Lab assay of single mutants.
Amino acid sequence: IINNLKLIREKKKISQSELAALLEVSRQTINGIEKNKYNPSLQLALKIAYYLNTPLEDIFQW
């Protein structure tokens, strides 16, 4: 999986903590996703895309 979450999140000036709060997950979860240590569920990936107002395929590429 190619993961552009960190790049997109930083472009939008959103911290890991802010995104985690919006998604109701821990900051460690966001960190793990960004470091490719954790693959989000489809539901979480869709929520990330929604809150970042970015197409899912721009954030994650399988």
Rank of each mutant, 00 (worst) to 15 (best):
Gly32Asn: 15
Lys11Ser: 15
Ile30Cys: 02
Leu44Asp: 03
Ile33Glu: 00
Leu56Ser: 03
Leu56Pro: 05
Ile1Glu: 07
Asn39Cys: 15
Lys35Trp: 07
Gln28Thr: 11
Ala45Gln: 10
Ile33Ser: 02
Pro55Gln: 06
Glu34Gly: 03
Ser15Gln: 06
Ser41Leu: 03
Gly32His: 14
Gln43Ala: 15
Tyr51Phe: 13
Glu57Val: 08
Arg27Tyr: 10
Gly32Phe: 13
Leu44Phe: 09
Leu23Gly: 02
Lys37Gly: 07
Lys47Asn: 06
Gln16Lys: 07
Lys11Val: 08
Ile14Thr: 05
Asn31Gln: 13
Gln61Asp: 11
Ala20Ile: 03
Leu42Met: 12
Ile48Trp: 03
Ser15Pro: 05
Lys11Asp: 08
Ile1Asp: 07
Lys12Asp: 03
Leu44Val: 06
Lys6Pro: 04
Gly32Glu: 15
Leu44Arg: 03
Leu44Thr: 05
Asn4Asp: 04
Tyr51Thr: 10
Leu7Asp: 11
Trp62Met: 12
Thr54Glu: 08
Leu52His: 00
Glu57Met: 09
Val25Tyr: 02
Leu19Asn: 00
Pro40His: 03
Lys47Gln: 10
Leu7Ala: 14
Trp62Arg: 08
Ala45Gly: 06
Lys37Asn: 11
Ile30Pro: 01
Ala49Tyr: 02
Glu34Ser: 02
Leu23Ser: 06
Glu10Trp: 06
Asn39Lys: 15
Thr54Gly: 01
Ala21Leu: 11
Lys35Ala: 14
Lys6Arg: 14
Asn3Thr: 05
Glu57Arg: 10
Gln61Phe: 12
Arg9Met: 06
Gln16Pro: 04
Asn53Trp: 04
Ile48Ala: 04
Leu42Thr: 06
Phe60Val: 01
Leu56Asn: 02
Leu23Phe: 02
Leu19Cys: 04
Leu42Phe: 13
Gln43Tyr: 13
Tyr50Lys: 10
Gln28Cys: 12
Leu22Gln: 12
Pro55Gly: 06
Asn36Trp: 07
Ile1Thr: 11
Gln16Ser: 06
Leu19Asp: 00
Ala21Lys: 14
Glu34Pro: 01
Leu5Lys: 00
Ile14Trp: 06
Asn31His: 13
Lys11Tyr: 10
Glu34Asn: 02
Lys6Glu: 08
Ser26Gln: 06
Lys13His: 12
Ser26Tyr: 04
Arg9Tyr: 03
Asn53Arg: 10
Arg27Cys: 10
Ser41Arg: 07
Arg9Asn: 01
Lys12Leu: 08
Glu18Val: 10
Leu23Arg: 01
Lys13Asp: 09
Lys47Pro: 01
Thr54Tyr: 06
Thr29Trp: 11
Glu24Gln: 14
Leu7Thr: 14
Ala49Gln: 03
Tyr50Thr: 07
Phe60Thr: 00
Ile30Thr: 01
Asn3Gly: 03
Tyr50Val: 08
Leu56Cys: 08
Gly32Val: 08
Leu56Met: 11
Ser41Thr: 12
Leu23Ile: 11
Lys11Arg: 14
Leu46Glu: 08
Leu5Tyr: 00
